[in-house]
Design a protein around this nucleic acid. Sequence first.
DNA 1: CTATTAATTTAAGCATGCTTAAATTTATGT
DNA 2: ACATAAATTTAAGCATGCTTAAATTAATAG
Lengths: 224, 224
Amino acid sequence: MSTISKENYLKAIYQNLSLGVAATTSKLSNDLEVSNAAISDMAKKLSKEGLISYEKYKGMVLTKEGKKIALDVIRRHRLWEAFLAKVLGIPWGEVHNEAERLEHHSSEELINKIDEYLGYPDFDPHGDPIPRSNGNLPDAPKFIPLTKTKVGTAYKIARVNDKNTDLIRYFTKIGLKINGKLKVVDRLSFDDSLHVEINGRPFTFSEKIAANIFVNEYNPETEK
Amino acid sequence: MSTISKENYLKAIYQNLSLGVAATTSKLSNDLEVSNAAISDMAKKLSKEGLISYEKYKGMVLTKEGKKIALDVIRRHRLWEAFLAKVLGIPWGEVHNEAERLEHHSSEELINKIDEYLGYPDFDPHGDPIPRSNGNLPDAPKFIPLTKTKVGTAYKIARVNDKNTDLIRYFTKIGLKINGKLKVVDRLSFDDSLHVEINGRPFTFSEKIAANIFVNEYNPETEK
DNA sequence: CTATTAATTTAAGCATGCTTAAATTTATGT
DNA sequence: ACATAAATTTAAGCATGCTTAAATTAATAG
Ligand SMILES: [Mn+2]
Ligand SMILES: [Mn+2]
Ligand SMILES: [Mn+2]
Ligand SMILES: [Mn+2]
């Protein structure tokens, strides 16, 4: 049977794998903030239930069934984020934490109602794609982290990491938002910090911040 | 610390006491669908935490602190019910089950946003009063169960039991709704079943159904 | 008042999901 | 290749919230 804990493990495994990161014991231990022993323990259970494939000392991979559950949790999470932001005006930096709990406690009917209410959105407030009820992900333009951008080029914000409230509050403060424009002015080789321009105003991002912002090349044609 | 289980126990105790029913082991065992032993067990814990006062073989009573938590859970429950019904159009018979889970997983900020969004409503979709954030209950006209009504008199529906989806679906089907009008036509002494009229149409309610509908005397002055 | 029944509590045990500490396996540097 | 370090698993144990079965207390009928 699927429990809250199992849903969270499957989600964490999926999110690592989808970023090309191996779902190892220590990585998941770090992500889920539980001991390595807890991960090992749960790996056995999930494997026995056919939700992951797992061999001792190797990482974990989701089975078809496990992936289905993971995507469904992510769907519920992102729809809640979108819904809370849109209907209640909860800031995009705060919705993640609410969704983190609600995602485990909403019926399929409720989630589908939310989906319908929002007009079947493709993306959540942070630019993350919302899995459809059939388990498919909407097509999305490939984006790159700000750390891999070219100096002197303009970009469009496609996605930000949604997990840190403070960081997103800062984004709001400086006018950085999804689909907004950002120009990369300079990159300091000393620490890879980045000088950028948003709405004509200059800001400096540490490499760590830049790694949490994802962009596409800016195409003036598609803008108004 | 307060957990989901403890919130449910406190809520069940409150709801019994507020109906004048003693919160005994067997009553709570029945309400919460767990064994008597589980109730006894939890009673000790809640008592130790100062949330109820409890003596073996006597019933349980909420302390001030316990009552505060109970009212807060009920507040969250009823605001969720009202919100889901209003925003997503979820039928009033279905919202209870959703709220039963969401009530344990929403931050105070979220609940207050919902409250604000709804314009600080006094009642939920079933006519139950919504505790305010300060723990007060809104003033409400006292109502009586349909079983205690007088034959030949018209009443206004004030509240229905929200716990049975099928029953409420039936109410919807026959046009019975909160603030709607209902006339008591006859009561059969054989089984205390009730003949009523709603929108000019006749229906018969068993005593059990009648016990789950609460009304005030109908006052044509206050109606349009 | 007492015998029987009903209600409640106690006892023992189980599943889940954690923990820390010890043991084991794998990876790495020389 | 081999010693050491890092990662992982195993072992033992704990808290929560249940269960069933046995023991105890309270209520009730005669
Ligand atoms: Mn999120
Ligand atoms: Mn998001
Ligand atoms: Mn309800
Ligand atoms: Mn209700």
